[in-house]
Design a protein around this nucleic acid. Sequence first.
DNA 1: TTGTATGCGTTATCAC
DNA 2: GTGATAACGCATACAA
Lengths: 337, 337
Amino acid sequence: MDSINIKKLAEALNLSTSTISRAFRDNSDINGATKERILAKAKELNYQPNHYASNLREQKSKTIAVIVPELANNYFSQAIHGIERVARENGYHILIYVTDDEYKKEVTFIRHLHNGRADGIIMSVSGEANDHNYLNKFGSKRLPLVFFDRIYEDIDTPRVITNDYNSSFLATEHLIEQGCNRIAYLVVNKSLSIGKTRMQGYLDALAKHQIPFEENLVIDCSNSYEENSIIIKEALTQLKPDGVFTSVERLAFATYYACYDLEINIPKDLKVISFSSLEIAPLLNPSLTTITQPATEIGEEAAKLLFTILDNHADKNLPNEVVLVSKIIKRNSTANG
Amino acid sequence: MDSINIKKLAEALNLSTSTISRAFRDNSDINGATKERILAKAKELNYQPNHYASNLREQKSKTIAVIVPELANNYFSQAIHGIERVARENGYHILIYVTDDEYKKEVTFIRHLHNGRADGIIMSVSGEANDHNYLNKFGSKRLPLVFFDRIYEDIDTPRVITNDYNSSFLATEHLIEQGCNRIAYLVVNKSLSIGKTRMQGYLDALAKHQIPFEENLVIDCSNSYEENSIIIKEALTQLKPDGVFTSVERLAFATYYACYDLEINIPKDLKVISFSSLEIAPLLNPSLTTITQPATEIGEEAAKLLFTILDNHADKNLPNEVVLVSKIIKRNSTANG
DNA sequence: TTGTATGCGTTATCAC
DNA sequence: GTGATAACGCATACAA
């Protein structure tokens, strides 16, 4: 093995390993000149303190894990981008884990991460329908955890969310104001809190405007493209809604495709509004009215929150919940005439 | 410190640490019953072998690093998704690094990664205009490295790319066949190999069809949304092309926005074709003709290639270059009357 | 300011 | 089949 380590560097410089070590840590007493000498030689020999040895010694990894349900999704990739930026600024590295919306994977990831690999976790959850209690099994040894977007309400940990209820209320109201009175609500899994919160806004807006709620206008979709296509087409033909409010971007796209096929004109026959982080919503045919979440900012906030926790071992009274505001951007998919 | 480790587990079971360790490794001699007993107790006490200690001992991290120029981009997030999947299957974890197209960051990341944090690197490069030689400075200690999409041609390492030249040739030819003869080529940085390769296809297609090449129809764009808007609008007004071939997705979007503003009709006045991994290209107004790269597959191939290298320390004769095929999908942005 | 010695949690070698 | 022990590379308490 010809690889360089602290000992060899020490020998090469006729110094002790402790002195070498000091040259790489900031707060140690060390002669400026020797430090220079060490750093120079280190560069020459391409020496870097071994990450695993340091971390074993220091009992921390300078690494955080990010767990998301999916990756090929504007919202999550933007959020990760935000997390990455903040992490980098703080000298942290990020590990990415994708659950594909499978609860089992989430549990496996979280369990695994408690082996020291990461100092903290930022997660958008996948298993709302399942048992969240596994998170409490770690006791006091549970890694610092921050939720964003999709959360477990029954788990006590900081979270970054958006004002979903309000946005949904306003979105529904917008459709009503545009003349809709048969508004369908498309959701991926209505038992998930995020689906429920958004649905409540929908319900309350209907109530406010004295539009009776019809159970079957709540369309429970799946994660499969093909299945959704069938479900949505059937809903459009059978129920003939004049407005659609979709709780996730993907369902708006599916609605568009369905309308193309069925020759339903958006917005004339059907108005569409959706939660979406798509930057090119204006380029769609027709341009899509969106509730746009500040995805990058959500990621940044989540990361900041986590670092606050990691810095203050004595958790000062930090916010347990950060709420960011989404914006409704009206475009042609909900236009009149 | 109340945290559990191998020693405590050993005490709790009246066994030695070696036996505990064996229970967690596959190939060791150990009594079936004791193994059961250990695993059970481990679960009960929430014990997991410390990752950093193991890795320090074994001199490998079961981690690979992925370096990309940007994240909020369909292509890269899909590619990462592919990498993540394959990595997971192989029991590896992935670290993500975003360079924001800054060469300096790339160098810093790569340097840093040679501290043992990762066993290998998958990268789409950012610094084509700069000195790539830093990669050779590591000598035999350089980590296994696989390029994908954007590569350094002068660095000898395996790579996964697409048939860019051919796709560009066919894309340009498609525009010509649709009646264009003033075709602009939009590129972010034409000195980059990927820009050059794609441009060569463009040039050769023009030549084949005896269309004289006009230097100023090659529009060198930037990474800034605002700058591109100005550049493209000026190009469209001054040069009046009847076709646009964009080397990256983002420039196609910018072209759409510019045309909306300038009231140029696509495809009547201007036909547009672009490299793009956008899944909703059919939903654009008008639907966008794309050269679609198999992004996820590219990621998967890159990961597989890396794992082949990591497995065979004696590098068998593995392919140095994997070429995947892109597909041209004709849509309305290049349609005729 | 620098050096010595010890231990972080694990696994491999070698005994038994 | 199991246990004692050294070593992985580094950082710190303590000594000098």
